Simulated assay, not measured.
Amino acid sequence: MSLAFSSSRPDRSAERWQSLRDIPPTVALSFAVLAVVIGWALTPWLFTGHDPISGLPAAKLLAPSAEHWFGTDHLGRDVYARVVYGTASSVGSGLIAVTIGVLAGGSIGLVAGFLGGWVDILLARLMDVLLAIPSFLLAVIIVTALGFTTTNAAIATGVSAVAVFARVMRAEVLKTREATFVEASFLLGGSRSHILFRHVLPNASRSVLSLAVLQFGLSILVIASLAFLGYGDPPPASDWGLLISIGKDYLKWPWLVYAPALVTTATVLSVNRISRWLRKAD
């Protein structure tokens, strides 16, 4: 027994190593980009020594250099430092939006698909109404009602994504509910709650995972767009969308727009690539 167990351990290690080697280079690069972004969000002071709020008037509108990687703005503030310190707000608000969408939309889809009947019909029609409204327009309406802050923009973005998560979860629950192992659990006397949380939810939530990753990137983009239009935190905040909005007034110094825009684009594209990889792996 012990010999067989010990001989199987190298095989498992080889399988894990092979699975890591099978990760496409673009996916590995996307993970690296996200690792840097997460580092910026959690410990921004480790990546820059410049103050993101206070600047030197004598150093205003300097081009990118070794000292100022992304140049400086009209107040002499280091743009790289402002991008780094704005990551926590931009990424954190995206996580808030995805959490709202997954919890609210996933719960609605789970209940609708598992119970069926009039409950399914009522919730499905409600989701159809939400899907009929463009998500960005719905987010603008909600954040206007709540107030112009980045947190409210995140809440509005999350609410606008509820219907998408509900539809995906409902479809997966309907498919899983008809599976043979679910019917067998019913025949063996399993309760509805046991079958729901032990069999249906774990199998139906796998597709929601890749959707959540994709929605995370989309949420960052939507929240940046809301901040660009002035629906987020006001200056001296350094949300990525707000930095782009400020930079558009200084087109003779294009790095004020290019730097935060490239960081936003790289983050969203990395998240989308990881989402496609997870969907194929699933």
Rank of each mutant, 00 (worst) to 15 (best):
G230H: 04
V263S: 02
F181E: 08
S8K: 11
A14P: 11
S65G: 09
V208R: 07
G86F: 04
V111M: 06
L29V: 09
L110F: 04
S89D: 15
S205E: 12
V143H: 04
T43W: 14
T48Y: 00
G101L: 01
L130V: 07
F5T: 14
T180H: 12
T150F: 06
E178V: 11
L46S: 11
L218R: 11
G232V: 04
G106A: 07
I133H: 01
G247L: 10
Y231F: 10
L242D: 07
S207Q: 13
V173R: 08
L188P: 04
L251P: 02
G247F: 08
L130K: 09
A124Y: 13
P24Y: 04
S19D: 15
S6D: 15
P236S: 03
V27K: 00
L103M: 06
N203M: 08
D233K: 11
L56F: 13
P64A: 11
S191A: 12
R16M: 11
D22P: 06
F181L: 03
W45D: 09
S65K: 05
K175C: 07
V164D: 13
A154W: 02
I100E: 06
T264M: 04
G241C: 06
V263K: 08
I246K: 14
I38H: 12
G39K: 13
R170V: 02
A63Q: 15
T176S: 00
G241A: 07
S185G: 02
A259G: 05
T26G: 08
P235D: 07
H74C: 10
V268A: 03
G232N: 02
T87I: 08
G241E: 05
I195Y: 09
I155H: 07
A132H: 08
A163R: 13
T151K: 14
V33Y: 11
A171W: 07
I223T: 00
A32Q: 11
R77I: 01
R170P: 01
A154E: 02
P254F: 08
W17N: 15
L61A: 13
I141T: 12
L75Q: 00
T144L: 10
P57H: 09
A63C: 13
R170W: 03
A14E: 13
Y80G: 12
L103K: 02
R192W: 14
R21E: 05
L187W: 06
G86A: 10
D78M: 00
V143R: 06
P254H: 11
I133V: 14
A227D: 10
A156G: 03
K280E: 15
